[in-house]
């Protein structure tokens, strides 16, 4: 099972790295004569309205499908884990302040904020990704904080304090490794969340500029072709689903295998 999950994500990662070389056609090359043709030997999943090869566009889209969610996951995990550790370990006013900020952030309707940010800042995709990362972080802070609160009371954390170790060392060298299973699982969940949410933004037309080879955008743009070439929109939608499921399940597995032998 785990091997299968890793294989799915590995293939997508390969496509992201080597997509342009693997693609049978230029993903942007139009052949209007071929417009919206069904699958054939030349075009395995057919073409879209502009006669662009669907397989090539899927391969080209793997890069943005992986790159931006990985960025979101790294950002939220790094920031969420650090602030969560700080909040749970320090407690007191640091904790109170951070938790109120977190409450506020969680109370905001995420998708609306994203649409407004993208709208006001004029379609800069980087801004949308940044806004999403910031919106995802409070959840991570909460989870890591609650685990930290439990771990800091355990005897090994007290022993570390008795040794006079600096708080930073206790947090990152002693507590963090024991939170690792949750942190890793959380990072994969953030990846999945970002992948689906970014695809949603593209579908709503507030993400990337039209014409970019992007899975979410392909679902939206080829929606009208369902009767001519259904694969043009079903294939990217299926890919999003498969990659999202694989990442979530892999997170589950990683959590289980990593939490064996830790302190309960």
């Amino acid at each position: 099972m785990r091997a299968a999950l890793t294989a799915v994500l590995g293939l997508v990662a390969l496509a992201a790295l080597a997509g342009p070389w693997l693609a049978p056609y230029d993903p942007a090359a139009q052949d209007l004569a071929l417009g919206a043709a069904g699958p054939s030997a030349a075009h395995w999943l057919g073409t879209d309205e502009m006669g662009r090869d669907v397989v090539s566009r899927l391969l080209a889209g793997a890069r943005s499908a992986l790159f931006w969610p990985v960025l979101v996951a790294l950002f939220t995990t790094a920031l969420g884990t650090s602030l969560g550790l700080l909040s749970g370990y320090r407690r007191g006013w640091v904790d109170a302040l951070l938790m109120r900020v977190v409450d506020l952030a969680i109370a905001m309707p995420g998708l609306l904020v994203l649409i407004v940010v993208v709208g006001v800042l004029g379609g800069g995709y980087g801004w949308a990704v940044l806004a999403m990362a910031v919106l995802f972080t409070p959840g991570d802070i909460r989870v890591v904080r609650s685990l930290t609160l439990a771990q800091r009371e355990l005897a090994y954390a007290e022993a570390a304090r008795t040794l006079g170790l600096r708080p930073g060392r206790i947090m990152f060298r002693h507590l963090l490794p024991n939170l690792a299973p949750t942190v890793v699982a959380n990072a994969l969940l953030s990846f999945t969340g970002a992948l689906v949410a970014l695809a949603g933004l593209s579908f709503l037309g507030v993400g990337l500029p039209a014409g970019t080879p992007d899975w979410g955008l392909m679902v939206e743009e080829n929606r009208q072709l369902l009767d001519l070439n259904p694969w043009a929109s079903i294939a990217p939608a299926a890919l999003i689903t498969v990659v999202a499921c694989a990442a979530t399940l892999l997170g589950d597995r990683a959590f289980e295998s990593m939490s064996k032998g830790g302190v309960r």
Binding site: L154, A155, Y156, E158, A159, A160, R173, H174, P177, N178, A180, G261, G262, V263
Partner: peptide, 10 residues
């Protein structure tokens, strides 16, 4: 209890 007073990750 030495099973909790030693960091299991270290």
């Amino acid at each position: 209890d030495p099973s909790t007073s030693l960091n299991p990750a270290m």
